[in-house]
Design a protein around this nucleic acid. Structure first.
Length: 270
DNA sequence: AAATTCTCCTGAAGGC
DNA sequence: TGCCTTCAGGAGAATT
């Protein structure tokens, strides 16, 4: 499931192949994702040059001469570079045909999105309501502590809210809380500034390490170059319910928080 | 305002 | 072998 490191891995993988190239054609095989893909995409983008590939939160932003295209990978989406005329497979919903290659969007569960944001992408509510990037200097313990003041929800849900901090999904929230020795069910407003400092450091370290390793491949995630990520080998608790805590060797516990599986060590995390 | 529930969807896994 | 049922989950939208 693509989180920030996977999206960043995709961005770095696809960018060199398509930047400064023109769109020749767009093939829409299935236009119903989370929201419908605009039917007029080809008219908008035909013969337009891609100028930039940026990432904000888990959104990829493809900057063209006439506006920005947003791509979200949802739960099961991936982008990859293919040779022109590569035969599509099941769930290959969209092809962006550039001069020398295809950018192919695949998404079995179709929780992703492809939206045209026009010339003022920053005004779109999907982007304008986002909190800071976790790897930026704006994401600090002071800011988290302040935001948590009136929030009684479990801290894990709190740090997964996009308006609090972007890009931290279930995998990395789980791992960062383990690293910071904070229980996922502790109320957000019941955590000291000092402990938020540990959490912020843990989030940054884990995301940076995951990006270095090309992201986490759980099902079939691959970067834009078709290679899997390797961070799953570094996971300590995510997906390891019932296994032993790597620190104290007691069995790991799992609970449901907001319908998401949350694994933690009740001995090490408080 | 904050918290909770619902919703989209497919594939994998488990039970019988 | 095959047909259920359950679950996983990003995050906006709707509801309380």
């Amino acid at each position: 499931m693509p989180e920030l490191p996977e999206v960043e891995t995709s961005r770095r993988g696809i960018s060199p192949h398509i930047i400064n190239h023109k769109i020749n054609n767009i093939v829409l095989r299935h236009h119903q994702l989370r929201w419908p893909i605009p039917q007029n995409l080809l008219q908008l983008l035909k013969n337009k040059t891609l100028l930039s590939v940026d990432r904000r939160a888990k959104y990829l932003l493809l900057g063209f001469e006439n506006g920005t295209l947003l791509i979200h990978l949802g739960m099961s989406g991936s982008l990859r570079i293919c040779e022109l005329n590569t035969a599509p497979q099941k769930h290959d919903h969209v092809d962006f045909q550039f001069q020398q290659c295809l950018l192919r969007y695949t998404d079995p569960r179709r929780f992703g999105a492809i939206l045209w944001l026009g010339e003022t992408p920053q005004d779109n509510p999907l982007l304008s309501t986002l909190g800071p990037e976790p790897l930026s200097d704006e994401f600090t313990a002071e800011m988290l502590y302040k935001q948590a003041k009136n929030r009684k929800i479990p801290v894990k849900q709190f740090i997964m809210e996009q308006k609090v901090v972007t890009g931290v999904g279930n995998i990395y929230a789980t791992e960062a809380l383990f690293s910071a020795k904070i229980s996922p069910i502790r109320a957000a407003n019941n955590i000291s500034l000092k402990r938020y400092q540990l959490l912020v450091i843990a989030i940054k370290e884990i995301l940076e390490e995951a990006i270095k390793q090309g992201g986490t491949t759980l099902k079939d995630f691959v970067g834009g170059d078709g290679k899997p990520g390797y961070f799953q080998q570094t996971l300590h608790v995510y997906g390891k319910t019932g296994e032993l805590c790597p620190s104290c060797e007691k069995p790991l516990t799992s609970i449901k928080l907001a319908a998401r599986n949350s694994v933690y060590c009740s001995h090490c995390q408080h």
